[in-house]
Nucleic acid binder design. Structure first.
Length: 259
DNA sequence: ATGCCTCCCCGAGGGAGA
């Protein structure tokens, strides 16, 4: 089962690039972030005609996550537990039924800039809630994953110019520590389990020719429970997608699981 | 690099992104 995560930076703006990538890449499941659309306006036919089931958790203008799946989805839930006051659409999960069941969680973790400040406080509080949901997933002892735009640069090697990010909410010590705290519960970071070394990125800014200079950062991640990690056959970043016509500033990352 | 683009709102130009 090929499962991808892709921050598309607006579903309307990606009406051509996203279907083209789906046709080329043929993922079974896709976790989308930043759909920037309410549920009623999401172009679900575009995906249903390609054989995908569609589940959205949208919001006007900002944020918004969705799941596309060629396999049946069950027990869909929306919103990260832990704060009933939180209106931001950043979390969706479902069980996908393949040879066996797999719990999949799609997330769009807050950016957090400027740091320090209220937006950074929201990011860290959101990560604390994520920590608790992650612990519950592990306790189930079932194959499960949490994937999406984490807005976290885990290590210096995950940025072309780490010194430019030292004070940024994506790379500050508290952000990285919160990410490690979740990892250290017992998750496998899929990409780093398969590929070592610098130069692997999932985001390049639109500005200043960042793509042409390969001035990128790796902020889109798959975290696998041990039961899911046992099933991993591959994990790759589709970096070439950044060079296509009218691209998102992020590219897809995918895992292949024997499930 | 506290913003060089691009997205959204809509029908100007400001907020948000990372």
């Amino acid at each position: 089962m090929k499962i991808a995560t892709f921050n598309i930076n607006g579903i309307k703006a990606r009406a051509e690039a996203l279907p083209r990538w789906l046709d080329e890449s043929q993922p079974d499941v896709v976790l989308l972030q930043e759909i920037k659309s309410v549920d009623e306006n999401f172009p679900r036919e575009m995906f249903e005609e390609r054989g995908y089931n569609v589940e959205t958790h949208g919001q006007k203008s900002f944020n918004g996550v969705a799941i596309l799946s060629k396999l049946p989805l069950e027990d869909v839930t929306r919103g990260l537990p832990g704060d009933d006051e939180d209106e931001q659409a950043r979390w969706i999960e479902a069980t996908v039924i393949g040879k066996s069941a797999l719990r999949i969680c799609g997330l769009y973790l807050p950016n957090g800039n400027p740091a320090p400040g209220p937006k950074y406080d929201y990011k860290l509080a959101w990560m604390e809630r994520l920590y608790h949901r992650a612990g519950d997933l592990l306790a189930s002892e079932e194959p499960a994953l949490m994937a999406g735009d984490y807005n976290i640069i885990p290590q210096a090697e995950d940025a072309a110019r780490p010194d430019a990010w030292r004070e940024d909410a994506l790379f500050r010590p508290e952000s990285r520590a919160a990410f490690r705290k979740i990892l250290n519960l017992g998750f496998t970071e899929a990409f780093r389990a398969r590929v070592q070394g610098p130069g692997h990125y999932s985001f390049w800014d639109y500005q200043a020719g960042a793509w042409n200079k390969n001035d990128g950062i790796r902020i889109d991640h798959f975290l696998l429970t041990p039961q899911a990690a046992d099933l991993m056959r591959d994990c790759q970043i589709d970096a070439a997608v950044r060079g296509h016509e009218k691209p998102s500033d992020h590219v897809p990352v995918w895992v292949d699981l024997d499930v």
